[in-house]
Structures are given as C-alpha cells and as structure tokens.
Amino acid sequence: MKKTKIKTDKLNLFYGAKQALIDISMEIPEKRVTAFIGPSGCGKSTFLRSLNRMNDLIPGVKINGDVIIDDINIYDKNIDVVQLRKRIGMVFQKSNPFPKSIYDNIAYGPRVNGISGKSTLDEIVETSLIRAAIWDEVKDRLKSSAMGLSGGQQQRLCIARALAVNPDIILMDEPASALDPISTSKIEELIHELKTDYTIVIVTHNMQQAARVSDFTAFFYIGELIEMDKTTTIFTNPYNKKTEEYITGRFG
C-alpha cells in the first residue's frame, strides 16, 4: 500500500457561525487519484480548498484541526502560505487561463518563482505542455492568446500551468464539469497518466467520472465524511446506506 500523503485530523471549518466541515479525518494516499463526491453544499470543495489554504482568502473563515502534508501541519503559524501553494497545484472548475499568450500562461508560475532564463522557461513550457498532452495542439501558436483555445484545451492548459511549478499534489475542483464528453475523456485520460507522478485529489459531481478516474472515493454529506473507500467498493458495494442511496441516485 502506498504511504499517506495528506492526512487530516478532526478538521472543522466555520463560515462565520455556520459550520461547513465537521470533524473530517481522512488519509489521502500518495500517487493515487482520490475523488470527493457528494451533493452540492456538502463541503467537498471547501475541504479541497482547505488543503492548500485557499479558504484563507475568504473573509470570516475559521479553521481548527490539523492538515498534515508530509508530516508538516500546514495550519501551523510558521507556515509560509505562498511556499505551500507552490507545492500544491490547483485546477479550477472554470478554465481560467490568464489573458496572456499560451507561453506566458505556462511561464507565469516559474516566473513568480524567480525563474527568468529564457532557455529554462522554454524547457519548462515545453515539458509542461507535453505532460498535459496539449503540446501538439499548441506548439505552433505559443505566442497567441490562451483565450482563443477551446474549453477543453484551456482546461488542459490550466493543468499544464499547474504542472509547470512542479507540485507534488494536484487539486482539481470539478475540472471537467463544463466540458463536452470528448474533452472530458481527454482530461480523464490525462489524470490517469499523471497519477504515476502526482497525488491527485479531484472533486466531481459526475459519479461516473469519479468511478472512471479515481482509485479512492470519499463521500461527503452535509459537512461530514460519510465514507471513504476504494472506488470499486463504493460503486459496487458501499458500506454505508447513505452512500448507496446517493450513488444510486435515490436522493440528491
């Protein structure tokens, strides 16, 4: 069995007075795809964003409990959030390339990390794009705007951009929810390829997608972690009745 990459211990999160996450204890294995499923508002996205402290940006959020990545508690006072986020790539629901050229989009991460040599940047851009399986489609127009790409290409570009800063962990927040089936398949194929090198956590509303891409699945319901297990088990023989009701479409 792979070792644990991310471990949370009794994580509670409050939006003001409202508790959004209740005592979440979970272990996310290294170099595996872990999917979070659950109805809207169940806290899965919130939990995902608390793994790279993106929730800090929202005013009025209080967090207690531990999130331990590689034996380090990221909610410790001495943690530099910027350094932390460099190690954790994130891909968002809406493809969000910057209004810059494709090259500048990929080079953005390395640049803010202080890399400025052109040859180094060229290399990073190329390897990232190849890794994200979009190199062949964009290699002839690296200087053109990233906004001109199709939705699926933009999303893969965003993945390439995340890869360019060489993270250990990639968090994906519904990465294919706005894409057509073919683009979705490409993203899923990409996730399959990436899991050999990265720990991937993916939030999805599409249960079939969770079933297709993930090794482990966690089911959230109203801020609580109901069940986490191997994906095969969750989708054939879940332990918890609530999970079964959800995945078979009996409530939503």
Binding site: N52, M54, L57, V82, Q83, R85, K86, R87, I88, G89, M90, F92, K94, N96, F98, Y108, G109, R111, V112, N113, C158, R161, A162, V165
Partner: peptide
C-alpha cells in the same frame, strides 16, 4: 477565479495584483 489561479500557483498578493 483569475486571482485564485494566480494565488494557487504560489504567487504572492503583490505578484497577483501586478502580473494578473
């Protein structure tokens, strides 16, 4: 989401404001 994308890449607030 544009700001978040930048911050998630490990850019500081200032870098985000200035470059994105």
């Amino acid at each position: 989401y544009m700001k978040e994308a930048s911050l998630a890449l490990g850019a500081s607030k200032w870098q985000t404001a200035w470059r994105v």
